[in-house]
Design a protein around this nucleic acid. Structure first.
Lengths: 155, 155
DNA sequence: CTCGATGCAAAGTATTTGCACCTAT
DNA sequence: ATAGGTGCAAATACTTTGCATCGAG
């Protein structure tokens, strides 16, 4: 299993999006191209507003409505996942193949730590089996204080 | 360990709320009394809107603003927990002592199945230890199809 | 050429807030 | 008496939608 280069990854995102659009009879517009590029330019979590700002600052121009419409498409085609961190607006992150991770959310500084724990995933499947439930996705997030913020509180 | 009667439980909720209010120099008003009664009248998950409707239909009168303000108090004093089911508005459920459960959410019929899995809780603590993270609360929810809805899809 | 896409502004939701009046303590 | 509380309506924050126009295939 060789690691894919950033370029290859980027191409595969575009590939996947193109296939999705074609399968639904939708079009690959300039705006969708621009948004796709920005979404996959960094690997951080982001919000619709962040994306809008970044694109505006770069000089390119896409309306807020189109941002929202396109983010929904990207979620539906499996390139993005919506992760909720307790705030009222949506946060998004990239989906990489089958890899799944969960989040530790610091109530102090807002930092988000990603972790994976195979055993928890396995136990979730066991729970689903027990209830004859067919899982499609899941979210696990633990809120608390990161190491740095614990020390800040003690002082 | 004897089971507490519904009456006893209800009293203990009121007790806890009263103590919380006193500790913060807040007042126990008629409106807060009414809301408290309705919140603990049933054991189901509910939303602010549900509560407002129920109270209005009963003939008692509390404004929407007061509902929201009081729900926040009840969350802060540990009597309610906010559970998020992917919708844009908040859902609440009762907190019973230390017992914690998580949710299976059916994308078909909206049914919510509660489950507890000690081992998952234990593994979460292990993860926190690994990252020197101090957990305060967590949410795990699995979305998918319940048994009934799986059959409906097959047909 | 045709139908889907875009931008804009208006409409929705869910929740919070400012303020004048009210009431528990 | 005096903070804190309440209702109301207006304000907010995020997201969706209607519609006239635009552009990809």
């Amino acid at each position: 299993m060789s690691k894919k280069s950033a370029l290859q990854e980027n191409l595969s995102y575009e590939q996947k999006f193109l296939e999705y659009l074609k399968s639904k009879g939708l079009r690959f517009t300039t705006e969708r191209q621009v948004i796709l590029n920005w979404v996959f330019k960094s690997h951080k979590h982001f919000e619709a507003e962040d994306l809008l700002m970044d694109i505006r600052q770069s000089g390119e121009r896409v309306s807020k409505a189109t941002i929202y419409r396109t983010l929904n498409l990207l979620v539906n085609c499996g390139l993005l996942r919506e992760v909720i961190f307790g705030e009222k607006h949506s946060h998004y992150e990239h989906v990489h193949g089958d890899e799944h991770h969960d989040h530790l959310v610091c109530n102090g500084c807002g930092k988000i730590i990603e972790f994976t724990e195979e055993e928890i995933e396995r136990l979730q499947d066991a729970v689903c089996l027990r209830y004859r439930f067919l899982p499609a996705s899941h979210r696990l997030q633990i809120q608390g204080l990161c190491h740095g913020c614990q020390r800040a509180v003690k002082e």
